[in-house]
């Protein structure tokens, strides 16, 4: 499994737990439009959990750009390379 696939898998685990949706399966194209529970409130909490899990920090400017799970994987990947 590539690093990228590993990140996607771990993000899936975080979202399943955070949204209490054990059956949730997201791919890189998944966005909040596809997951009804992924609202503003849960978004903030999920981002805190993703940052904590990968030991990275996102800025507001970076978070504003995120539209899909693929964007989130890009951001995590870039941050981990820099750290």
């Amino acid at each position: 499994m590539s690093d990228r696939e590993e990140i996607l898998q771990q993000i899936n685990v975080i979202f399943r737990k955070g949204l209490n949706k054990p059956e949730l399966e997201m791919n890189e194209a998944t966005s909040a439009d596809h997951v009804p529970e992924w609202d503003s409130l849960n978004h903030a909490l999920l981002m805190v959990r993703v940052q904590g899990h990968f030991q990275v920090k996102f800025s507001i400017a970076e978070l504003v750009q995120l539209k899909t799970i693929g964007d989130l994987c890009d951001l995590v990947e870039a941050k981990m390379k820099r750290s």
């Binding site: 909040a32 503003s40 978004h43 507001i60 504003v64």
Partner: peptide, 11 residues
């Protein structure tokens, strides 16, 4: 309106 309200407000 393309993202979460709290982030778009800060922006």
């Amino acid at each position: 309106t393309s993202g979460p309200k709290y982030l778009m407000t800060a922006h």
